[in-house]
């Protein structure tokens, strides 16, 4: 059964400056994307959903309210964020980073949690080659793979992806979005925040457009991708073209 995430009237403020003005969204499963320009409040939204930023409003996961919980407790309930800065353990080996991704499973006494390593190495063969190296020496694409792999080691129910294509070469961006599309088959629900609106809308089922801290539009990705305003603002002329 896929998980459902509901965000209600989320408000995030940095001092007196409000970055998110009561944004709401639903992730019933599959892949939902939030697109918008730089500074729209997309990352603030994900960080608040994860509990890394203080916020007002409510966050529900499968009917359970998470709003008062610490990030660690949200991870224990199946929420996982792959942050924009990846937040890897740079002085530790690739394998240790992956093993720590399953920290909560280990803590809960789940048997066979280490076996997920093979699954992750199967999905990201490059990580197997680099498993003894420290994370600091990885390339940008490999770091992104490691961040995704570490998140998947926890077997999350909802995966929050913050700008997965940021700072990556075009070839690696294509590979990253292919992996995100493949993840759909695992049953994990994905909330994808992305500046690359074209690529995000191609991979997602449903989308929200966030501008200056408010949701200004939402709908099935196909509809959004053909919305003249969205095309003019975010997609340019190549609305129907392939991911670049």
């Amino acid at each position: 059964m896929t998980a459902s995430l509901v965000v209600e009237e989320l408000v995030v403020a940095y001092g007196r400056v409000e970055a998110l003005h009561g944004a709401s969204l639903e992730l019933p499963g599959g892949i939902v994307t939030v697109v918008g320009p730089n500074g729209a409040g997309k990352s603030s939204m994900l960080n608040a959903v994860m509990g890394l930023l203080p916020s007002r409003g409510r966050v529900w996961l499968d009917g359970e309210e998470l709003s008062r919980l610490e990030p660690e407790a949200r991870v224990a309930r199946g929420l996982c964020l792959v942050a924009e800065k990846r937040e890897l353990f740079t002085t530790m080996s690739v394998e240790d980073n992956l093993l720590l991704g399953a920290y909560q499973r280990h803590k809960k006494g789940e048997k066979g949690w280490r076996n997920s390593l093979d699954e992750i190495y199967g999905r990201f063969p490059r990580l197997r080659e680099r498993r003894r190296q420290i994370a600091a020496v990885l390339s940008g694409g490999e770091r992104q793979m490691l961040a995704l792999g570490r998140a998947l080691m926890g077997k999350p129910r909802v995966l929050l992806l913050d700008e997965p294509s940021l700072g990556l070469a075009p070839r690696v961006v294509r590979e990253t979005f292919r992996i995100i599309a493949d993840l759909r088959a695992t049953g994990v629900a994905i909330l994808l925040v992305e500046q690359n609106a074209r690529a995000a809308l191609q991979v997602a089922d449903y989308g929200y457009v966030l501008e200056t801290g408010s949701v200004v539009s939402s709908g099935p990705s196909g509809t959004l991708a053909n919305d003249p305003r969205i095309i003019a603002t975010y997609l340019g002329r190549r609305a129907g073209s392939k991911i670049e």
Binding site: E72, L81, A83, F89, M92, L100, G154
Partner: peptide, 17 residues
């Protein structure tokens, strides 16, 4: 390893629970 990870990256540690 979790203690070491907390030393290396506190936010990363929170993100893995």
């Amino acid at each position: 390893k979790a203690l070491h990870a907390t030393a290396v990256n506190r936010i990363g540690a929170k993100l893995v629970g």
